[in-house]
Nucleic acid binder design. Structure first.
Lengths: 224, 224
DNA sequence: CACGGTTTTGGATCGGCGATCCAAACGTGT
DNA sequence: ACACGTTTGGATCGCCGATCCAAAACCGTG
């Protein structure tokens, strides 16, 4: 009935998985995991569902592809032929910063640990630990421990950062509020957290992360 | 019309947040995070949406409550007045096993790290590290590192376990498959993972986790 | 024991999501 | 120029979290 709604003409620039992954990464970075919906993708790419599903199996495939993309960028960007100890710190910091910039990566890595991204991480860190001279019998325990430490802390940090407004002023205001709550908890029931509150205000996440890596490397050194 | 559908009579046993949290934990344990829906809850509790929303603010409130519940059970169940080193290992193992039994807890802890559960974990581990004699200046870095290591590894382990069928036969079959894939990766491009494949078959997650805790404690000891 | 306000409960409903499906538009080989 | 396979856009489905409202039970007051 006179509907004849002329459908929009086909796009000229070809759609590809790469284009879709880039758009998805943008949505994830600006709005968090909840912002990645196929509807938002169709709007941003001005296309339809079918076009996207033609290049991507489903949502978790898309998330995995975006994660692999981010991690691959980090690992190839890091100089590995440095001194192993420096290389390890560089890789650790690179992953920390990447997850800080893309908080959803941390969650995805622990949700689907069998995909390529984690394999590459293990390979890079394991090789560096080997070059560091960690004995064979302890190499795999050490690699597992270090990888998990790095991803664990980076993920926690990203989760914390997500709560904070991304503005530095709000950040210190938030930290002050939390510190105040913590110190109010009472030294008898919460002696540690009560004391930690004072440190909270002045602490630097990145420095604390590196301090943890060093604790780790010191522990690994005792295995030799 | 003649609809006059007599509405079901009101339940006699009172609904409470505790009952709802228990039911939610059951759903989460058997079917994973995807299985926790308000529809499934209404079925299991044979009630309606309003009844549940009367006791619970929303879904994330429910998840947080269930998480706090599980973690509180672990921390109160652990003997703390033992030797600090043993206490730390006991707490670490308790958390590892709890997250292994309730995989969703790990994800929730990193998703909303400001809720009570993580506070209690920090308090318990921080106090034990203090009793261990870690110097004040390193105490908070050490606590942060250890907490994140424990939660990181436990979460990864739970994610791995979730893929595996919960049957031990399927588990070794799966491990064999992964080990085979890994060893096929080629020693030139993936020297570490290629070697790790051999270990994968025989490794015990719990033992490897404890080995990591020991690496940590060894590293912390060097801070003294 | 009656009665009215308050708390607790059940279910209809809404908008938004991932996924599926199909026809229109395009490109390519002949 | 034509036909066939590929790429694209959008209608549609079933399910989700959340909201809202009225029925049912409870309870203090007289």
């Amino acid at each position: 009935m006179a509907k004849k709604t002329r459908r929009a003409p086909r796009r000229t620039d070809g759609l590809s998985k790469e284009v879709i992954v880039t758009a998805a990464t943008g949505l994830l970075d600006t709005g968090g995991e909840a912002a990645l919906t196929f509807r938002a993708l169709t709007t941003r790419l001005s296309t339809g569902y079918g076009a996207i599903y033609h290049h991507v199996a489903n949502k978790s495939d898309l998330l995995a592809a975006a994660t692999d993309d981010v991690i691959a960028r980090v690992l190839t960007g890091v100089v590995v032929d440095a001194e192993p100890r420096d290389g390890l710190r560089a890789v650790a910091l690179g992953l920390f910063d990447a997850i800080d910039a893309h908080p959803w990566v941390g969650a995805q890595l622990s949700r689907e640990p069998w995909r390529p991204a984690l394999l590459e991480i293990y390979e890079t860190i394991g090789r560096l630990l080997d070059a560091l001279g960690v004995p064979e019998r302890a190499l795999f325990d050490a690699a597992g421990a270090l990888v998990n430490y790095v991803l664990g802390v980076a993920g926690q940090n990203a989760a914390n950062a997500r709560v904070l407004a991304y503005d530095e002023a709000d950040r210190s205001a938030f930290l002050a509020t939390v510190a105040e709550q913590w110190s109010r908890l009472g030294p008898d029931r919460y002696p540690f957290v009560h004391r930690a509150a004072a440190r909270l205000r002045e602490h630097d996440d990145r420095e604390q992360f590196l301090a943890g890596v060093d604790i780790f490397l010191a522990g690994i050194a005792t295995l030799r």
